[in-house]
Amino acid sequence: MATITEIKAEQLRRPDTPEGLILQGCGGNLQEWVTGINDMLTEENILLDGSRFEQASVFEHQGLTNLFFPFKDVKLDMGKLAIWRLNTREQFGSMWRSDYVDNRLGGPLEENAPAQKPDCPLIGQNGNIFNLMGIASRTLKEHGMEEQAREMRSRIMESGSYDKALVIIGDYVNITSIDETDEDFEEGMDMDL
């Protein structure tokens, strides 16, 4: 069974994201989609030598649920896949990741561009520093900034002061009120502290 990871569409813009195939408008059971695409591409001799997409990502954009299949760790006949992609454009909205980023997301992020701090609704929350740290950590993870979340938590734990901890949180996120949340990010994810 393939691993399906939930991501934000913005993560596809990062320069370290591998090329891959995006299918748009994937409703229903996502595991069935991944299995079906693996089977279909195997039948068409596009996936070679028993290779399968073991990793996929799901993201929401413009009201659609989409699947991203990175080309990392799979053996493909790229010529046949390119023809298949063109033939299934109507049916699956098939696009390369790079085309999707250019045409739907405003282009890739610059290689050395500083990461933007995401908005984080902390004003009006329970002021316990562990609660605030957890909310900020979850916000960073939702924006594909797992490394920054770990770094922030480590710095907070070493700070030894509530005031210093709040300043550190502000280094990583834009602190906003719970009344100003961005609708795109209201859906919560499980957090690990």
Rank of each mutant, 00 (worst) to 15 (best):
V167T: 14
I123L: 10
A56I: 07
G93N: 12
N103P: 00
L105C: 04
F185Q: 01
F53L: 01
E90W: 08
N38E: 14
K164A: 15
K164H: 06
I129L: 13
K75C: 14
C120T: 12
K117L: 06
A165E: 02
S159W: 09
P18Y: 11
T88Y: 07
P70R: 09
M1I: 08
I83K: 01
N126E: 11
L166S: 02
G124Y: 04
E187Y: 09
N131W: 04
A115I: 11
G160S: 12
D39I: 00
D16P: 00
A165Y: 06
S137N: 08
I22K: 00
L21N: 01
L122Y: 15
L166Q: 08
G20A: 14
Q116M: 02
G25K: 10
S159E: 03
F53D: 00
E6P: 09
I37G: 02
M78F: 11
L140D: 11
T88L: 04
T42G: 07
T181Q: 12
D102L: 13
E142F: 01
G127R: 09
R155A: 12
V167M: 03
D39N: 09
E32W: 07
V58T: 05
R153K: 14
I83H: 09
Q91W: 11
E151L: 10
D49E: 15
M157G: 08
A136T: 05
E180F: 15
E180S: 15
S51H: 06
N87I: 05
F59S: 03
R153D: 12
L23W: 03
E32M: 03
M78Y: 07
D39F: 00
G50F: 02
M1S: 13
E44Q: 08
R52P: 04
E147Y: 06
L86N: 10
R52S: 11
L86R: 02
T139P: 06
T42N: 11
T35H: 10
L132W: 07
I175L: 02
G63K: 13
P18H: 08
K164M: 10
D49R: 00
M40E: 14
E54T: 07
A113Q: 12
C26S: 04
I123W: 15
K8G: 08
A113F: 05
E60A: 12
H61F: 15
G160T: 06
W84V: 09
M133C: 10
M40Q: 08
I83R: 00
